[in-house]
């Protein structure tokens, strides 16, 4: 089972220009669009919606197919992250200022595009560069390791950002994931 929690906050702006689309299949697929990026020259919400529709309707489709369809809809300047995660592995395709980090074995590392094996208890956060801006790696790691849930992990990180910005410096978008394959199964 993949436990996750999503943050979508306007961050003191009139509009929320980022977006998150999630497909709850056997493997969870999420698309995180960074529409509020300072590098974005024009709002491409329509493209993001189309790409989001690909993700939302992409249950059972191979990750590579979804990734190439999403890339087809998104402009070259668009910044986004596509992730598919299960108990065993994670696949990532990210462009621009959205990326994933994994908290594991004492450290936090940025996940490259491609496939990586996962273990029970692994914790992954995907976010925009604005979300990460006020967070250090030790902060992300400790918050991950003291949290009971993906929601609490997000709360701890948001509290840190809040202390420095009052959440008034633009849209904040992120997702936290925890791999939980130690569910207790009751034998009938």
């Amino acid at each position: 089972m993949i436990e996750y929690y999503t943050l979508m906050h306007r961050g003191g702006r009139d509009d929320y220009l980022d977006n998150v689309y999630i497909n709850h299949g056997e493997k969870l697929t999420a698309f995180l669009y960074y529409g509020s990026s300072d590098r974005t020259t024009e709002v491409r919400s329509n493209e993001a919606k189309l790409a989001g529709a690909v993700v939302s309707g992409g249950r059972g489709r191979p990750f590579d197919e979804i990734a190439s369809d999403v890339a087809m809809y998104m402009g070259n300047e668009s910044e986004y992250l596509l992730i598919r995660i299960s108990n065993e592995e994670v696949m990532i395709d990210s462009r621009g200022g959205v990326y994933a980090m994994i908290a594991k074995k004492g450290d936090v590392r940025r996940l490259p595009n491609g496939l990586m094996k996962l273990d029970n208890g692994d914790r992954i956060v995907c976010g925009t560069t604005r979300f990460y801006k006020k967070l250090t790696k030790p902060a992300i790691y400790t918050d991950a390791m003291i949290s009971f849930s993906s929601e609490e992990w997000m709360d701890f990180m948001v509290c840190r950002i809040s202390e420095q910005t009052m959440l008034s410096e633009g849209n904040l978008t992120a997702i936290t994931f925890i791999v939980r394959n130690d569910e207790i199964r009751i034998k009938e």
Partner: peptide
């Protein structure tokens, strides 16, 4: 490294849920 267990944390959480600064 350790979050402070004070009332601020609770208030921040509440305001974030309401989408506020």
């Amino acid at each position: 490294l350790n979050p402070r267990q004070n009332y601020v944390s609770y208030l921040v959480k509440k305001l974030v849920r309401e989408g506020k600064e």
